Computed example of a mutant assay.
Amino acid sequence: MTDTIKPTARKSPKKHEAKPPFRASQEFADNLQRLHVDLIDLHLQGKQAHWNVVGKNFRDTHLVLDEVVDAARAFSDQVAERMRAVYITPDGRAATIAAQTSLAPYPADEIDTAETVDLITAALYAVVGTARDIHEVIDSADPTTADIIHTVLERLEQLAWMIDAENRIANRSIPRPVHE
């Protein structure tokens, strides 16, 4: 004999209303969405590069790409969770990423390590460009969210410098170092 569980009558819930002291504007939301999309695409491009890099200094390049992927994944999650905290719905669907990313497409084939360095550096700087572009609007509205952007900038610029150094030529590459 089978017992069936009868659903209990459910009362409609009382209206719920939160009263947060800060709630994002549409411009704020759009800007964070831009950064979120670029971080997700950076993660995807980093994995594509990681799987398909070949050539001289393969192992170091292969391993540093995992650092890029880890940072991009962690930052995209942190940005998305901050978006939810200020009542923005993040959109990380594949079609959205493809339609909205500011990163150049990454090649599908094997890529030599030197070209991989240039491509990933460009992708890192594209995300940094987005973060810098949105920073003023975010900071003026919510310094707490701007702190997240500062962390993103600090780490991604560090990674770009470290990765780009692989292809730099001492005292001849551009940009030139600034001296006192």
Results as ranks from 00 to 15, higher is better:
53 V>M: 00
111 I>K: 04
115 E>A: 10
106 Y>T: 03
132 R>W: 10
64 V>I: 15
57 N>R: 15
162 M>I: 11
145 T>G: 05
146 A>K: 00
129 G>K: 10
80 A>C: 11
97 I>S: 02
91 D>S: 14
147 D>E: 04
134 I>H: 07
134 I>P: 06
113 T>Q: 08
121 T>K: 12
41 D>P: 01
97 I>F: 02
126 A>K: 02
92 G>Q: 12
119 L>A: 08
141 A>S: 14
139 D>C: 03
94 A>E: 07
76 S>A: 14
147 D>I: 01
112 D>C: 01
63 L>D: 13
87 Y>T: 11
152 V>Q: 13
97 I>T: 03
98 A>W: 04
54 V>I: 11
109 D>W: 00
127 V>K: 08
86 V>H: 14
160 A>C: 12
81 E>G: 01
109 D>G: 03
148 I>L: 15
77 D>W: 04
60 D>K: 15
63 L>I: 13
53 V>F: 01
70 D>H: 10
40 I>W: 05
119 L>M: 09
166 E>P: 00
84 R>G: 05
107 P>W: 03
133 D>G: 14
116 T>C: 08
50 H>Q: 04
133 D>K: 13
151 T>H: 04
136 E>S: 13
126 A>H: 09
82 R>I: 10
113 T>K: 05
146 A>Q: 00
101 T>E: 03
150 H>P: 00
102 S>P: 00
75 F>V: 02
43 H>P: 00
47 K>L: 07
55 G>A: 01
87 Y>I: 06
64 V>G: 08
97 I>M: 02
159 L>C: 13
59 R>S: 10
125 Y>L: 15
87 Y>A: 13
145 T>L: 09
111 I>Y: 02
61 T>L: 12
151 T>V: 07
61 T>A: 11
137 V>P: 05
122 A>S: 07
138 I>C: 09
75 F>Y: 14
83 M>G: 06
109 D>M: 04
103 L>Y: 06
112 D>A: 02
139 D>F: 09
85 A>I: 03
125 Y>H: 14
58 F>T: 05
